Simulated assay, not measured.
Amino acid sequence: MTPETRSQLPMASTGCACCAPAPALNQTVPTAETAPPAGTSTAYQVKGMTCGHCAQSVTEEVTALDGVSEVRIDLVAGGTSTVTVTAARPLSAEAVRAAVEEAGYTLVTA
């Protein structure tokens, strides 16, 4: 067997339960490398995410909502990140809030 090649993700300066402190990052984490799917896209502001693992947790919970076809995250470590959700039909803010909270983060209200 040949050894696996793995890329290390940069960690956030504030760290989280799964990461050690390191330089801050600002990256977009798409769920797929394809053309955006058709549907309704809505951007939500989420606090508390600090790394790729945090973004993955939110992506998994929000993707599980009925009708969601894509979740894109503009991660602002230690700040307010933008989570853009594309779905076949508009989602209730409460459903998205519940999914984000299930992942352990906070949906910011306007």
Rank of each mutant, 00 (worst) to 15 (best):
T2I: 13
P3R: 15
E4P: 13
T5R: 13
T5F: 15
R6F: 10
R6A: 12
S7G: 11
S7M: 08
S7F: 13
L9S: 15
M11R: 13
A12L: 10
T14P: 03
G15H: 01
C16W: 02
C16I: 05
C19L: 08
C19W: 00
A22Y: 00
A22T: 00
A22R: 00
A22S: 12
A24P: 08
A24H: 14
A24R: 09
L25V: 14
L25G: 01
L25N: 12
N26E: 15
Q27Y: 15
Q27V: 15
V29S: 13
P30N: 04
T31G: 12
T31W: 10
A32D: 15
A32T: 14
A32M: 15
E33N: 15
E33L: 15
T34D: 14
A35P: 06
P36C: 08
P36S: 11
P37D: 07
P37A: 10
A38W: 10
T40G: 11
T42H: 05
T42R: 08
T42Y: 01
T42C: 04
A43L: 07
A43Y: 01
A43H: 02
V46G: 02
V46Y: 00
K47A: 15
G48Q: 07
M49W: 04
M49P: 00
T50N: 15
T50E: 02
T50A: 11
C51I: 01
H53Q: 11
H53L: 14
C54N: 00
A55T: 05
A55Q: 06
V58S: 06
V58R: 03
V58A: 05
V58F: 04
T59W: 04
T59I: 11
E60M: 12
E60C: 14
E61T: 12
V62M: 04
A64I: 09
D66Y: 12
D66R: 12
V68M: 03
S69F: 01
E70F: 05
E70M: 07
E70Q: 13
V71L: 02
V71Q: 05
R72A: 14
R72T: 14
I73V: 10
I73A: 10
L75K: 03
L75M: 09
L75V: 10
V76D: 09
A77V: 02
G78T: 00
G79A: 08
T80D: 07
S81R: 04
T82R: 05
T82S: 04
T82K: 06
V83F: 04
V83M: 01
V83N: 05
V83Q: 03
T84A: 04
V85I: 13
R89K: 15
L91W: 01
S92P: 11
S92L: 14
A93E: 15
A93L: 10
E94I: 06
E94N: 13
E94L: 08
V96Y: 02
V96G: 01
V96L: 08
A98K: 09
A98R: 12
A99T: 10
V100D: 05
E101G: 10
G104I: 02
Y105Q: 09
T106M: 12
L107P: 06
V108A: 12
V108D: 08
V108C: 09
V108Q: 06
V108G: 03
T109Y: 07
A110K: 06
A110F: 02
